[in-house]
Write a protein that binds this DNA or RNA. Structure first.
Length: 321
DNA sequence: GCCAGTCAAGTCCCG
DNA sequence: CGGGACTTGACTGGC
């Protein structure tokens, strides 16, 4: 028997005017002559994004959802080199406190997936530096929400740079330059174009990092490997984590456009997977990555109600026997 | 009010 | 080596 908990990504198709990713580009920023006023505008956007996050968390509570990925675009231009003097955390104290209080009363697994330009294996020192800076922003936000930062940021390994083996070694080299507290935040995910499950396992085992298995990516990018042969290693990568094993679940948009995310999740595909792994872990948290966001989660729940081996605990988690 | 184009970022592909 | 595609959601500008 295994407990399965479902989550979704960053925004809701049901909540209107509730984007947690409102933004301002650097070009727009520069057009505002009064720099102080421009920074004030950035701060208003960031506060609004976090207020919308709180609305989303309340929406999650109303639907029993206890697993959620926050947008990584909460603070526009937070890491821009021209805004180094801006203390972006200063105006966020109050709203972060409100989120912390909400999460204290309704515990939820919160994590981040920093954008794909956070590259810890870059051979370019400036890109590595910027990546570490972005991880630091995530760490500050987690602290502000009073969330233990351990294993909250899922990253891809990074670029292939014409030599994957070398690129993996570069990751290990660069890891030494990542502060220990930021190392602890990281989880690694197999990607759909470059680094396969085996590549990712190699790094995860070497660096003691949990592996977030993305089944869809694996199907799009593998070298004759069967994920089932490696499942035990995936589970083991979580043995020192305070959090349950985490996965990404998505369905292909079409055979022609296989890598793109579908609006919804194919329930039969998901059940086939769960039937393979049930009993191997106590609990598994599945992040639903679908274009229709929370609606895809709700539809999946409805579809799963038809399976006899599924017994629902609440609106977003169930036992599978 | 809608649709097409633009904006961020770094990688990768093509010529 | 340079330009364009890729990806994603938000936003801007034209009509």
């Amino acid at each position: 028997m295994t407990i399965v908990r479902l989550g979704y990504v960053a925004m809701s198709v049901h909540l209107h005017n509730c984007s947690p990713s409102q933004t301002m580009t650097f070009a727009q920023f520069q057009k505002i002559k009064d720099r102080e006023a421009a920074i004030k505008k950035l701060e208003r956007i960031a506060v609004s994004n976090l207020e919308n996050c709180l609305r989303l968390l309340k929406h999650n509570k109303a639907h029993d959802i206890r697993f959620f990925r926050l947008s990584s675009r909460l603070i526009p231009l937070a890491n821009h080199e021209e805004l180094d003097d801006w203390n972006y955390m200063k105006p966020l104290g109050d709203i972060l406190e409100q989120i912390a209080e909400f999460l204290h009363n309704y515990p939820m697994r919160i994590d981040f997936h920093p954008d794909h330009f956070v590259l810890l294996n870059s051979p370019d020192a400036d890109i590595l530096k910027m990546s570490i800076k972005t991880l630091r922003m995530h760490e500050k936000l987690l602290r502000g929400m009073q969330i233990d930062p351990q294993h909250r940021c899922v990253l891809h390994i990074g670029g292939g740079y014409n030599d994957k083996e070398q690129a993996l070694e570069q990751f290990i080299h660069n890891w030494g330059f990542v502060p220990i507290d930021l190392q602890k935040m990281v989880m690694l995910e197999n990607d759909d174009t470059t680094f396969t499950l085996q590549h990712t396992l190699y790094l995860c085992e070497k660096l003691n990092v949990p592996l977030v298995f993305d089944l869809h990516h694996h199907l799009a990018n593998h070298e004759n490997e069967d994920w089932k042969q490696h499942w035990g290693r995936i589970v083991s990568s979580w043995q020192h984590s305070p959090l349950p094993l985490k996965m990404h679940i998505s369905s292909p948009r079409s055979d022609q456009d296989f890598r793109a995310h579908n609006d919804f999740i194919d329930a039969q595909m998901f059940m086939n997977f769960l039937n393979e792994i049930k009993g191997t872990v106590e609990q598994i948290d599945c992040m639903i990555e679908a274009k229709q966001k929370d609606e895809a989660l709700f539809r999946l729940v409805r579809d799963l109600e038809g399976y006899k081996e599924v017994e629902f605990i609440d609106g977003a988690s169930f036992y599978i026997r």
